[in-house]
């Protein structure tokens, strides 16, 4: 047989053929619902967010203060040892300026871009923190190493979710007093990820 003999054939279609109903289609809307168990670590993390606090777990073997908290250390592979509150301030590790929504639809001309950022939280080990959004700042004014603080929902409106923090906004006046101020971040420190992993 020739190679062409193995081709199964078919009909070339245009989008207008679909629009005019010339092509038969089958649609299905899946009914999928999940309720994930938060477990011990994330359960407490969310309960503390509802109270306006951020809690971490400490591993006594590698001495890392981990956020989001976890009941086991993935590097030492043993249970973590204690809870520790950390601050709701931190330093921007990285950020992006998103002109599209989560479903990839383009944001309207009057909608400001969304600014997701990874924020290294004060009191947690370097390189650990929260993935959240930045607010109260123009996209042009953001830099890696920028000092930020959480803007919380009002106590009565919190539900025990990561969205109990509305966003992080720049710390303006008090920045100089912090031990991990933006200026220090530029003073030749190793990148955060390298530092976190060099613990092993």
């Amino acid at each position: 047989m020739k190679l062409e003999d193995y081709e199964l054939g078919g009909t070339h279609l245009r989008s207008s053929d679909f629009e005019k109903g010339k092509v038969l289609t089958t649609a299905w809307q899946p009914n999928l619902a999940y309720a994930w168990d938060n477990g011990v670590a994330i359960g407490r993390y969310l309960a503390e967010l509802k109270e306006g606090r951020i809690v971490a777990r400490v591993c006594h073997s590698c001495n890392r203060i981990m956020i989001p908290p976890r009941m086991f250390c993935e590097l030492c592979f043993k249970p973590t040892d204690e809870w520790r509150y950390v601050k709701d301030t931190g330093t921007v590790n990285t950020f992006s300026v998103a002109h599209v929504n989560w479903d990839a639809s383009r944001r309207g001309p009057k909608e400001p871009p969304l600014i997701p950022a990874v924020i290294e939280i004060d009191g947690a080990s370097p390189g650990m923190g929260i993935l959240h959004m930045l607010g109260g700042v123009s996209p042009n004014g953001i830099t890696v190493g920028m000092r930020v603080e959480a803007v919380w929902k009002k106590p009565g409106e919190r539900t025990g979710a990561i969205t109990d923090i509305l966003y992080f906004k720049p710390i303006r006046a008090a920045a100089a007093k912090s031990p991990r101020a933006a200026g220090k971040a530029k003073a030749g420190r190793k990148p955060a990820a390298t530092r976190a992993r060099s613990k092993r």
């Binding site: 168990d37 477990g39 670590a41 086991f72 592979f77 043993k78």
Partner: peptide, 16 residues
């Protein structure tokens, strides 16, 4: 049901 632990915590116990 295992409402007390996340899937991560569940698996860690078996792995450890």
């Amino acid at each position: 049901v295992t409402p007390d632990v996340s899937f991560r915590e569940l698996i860690f116990e078996a792995a450890r």
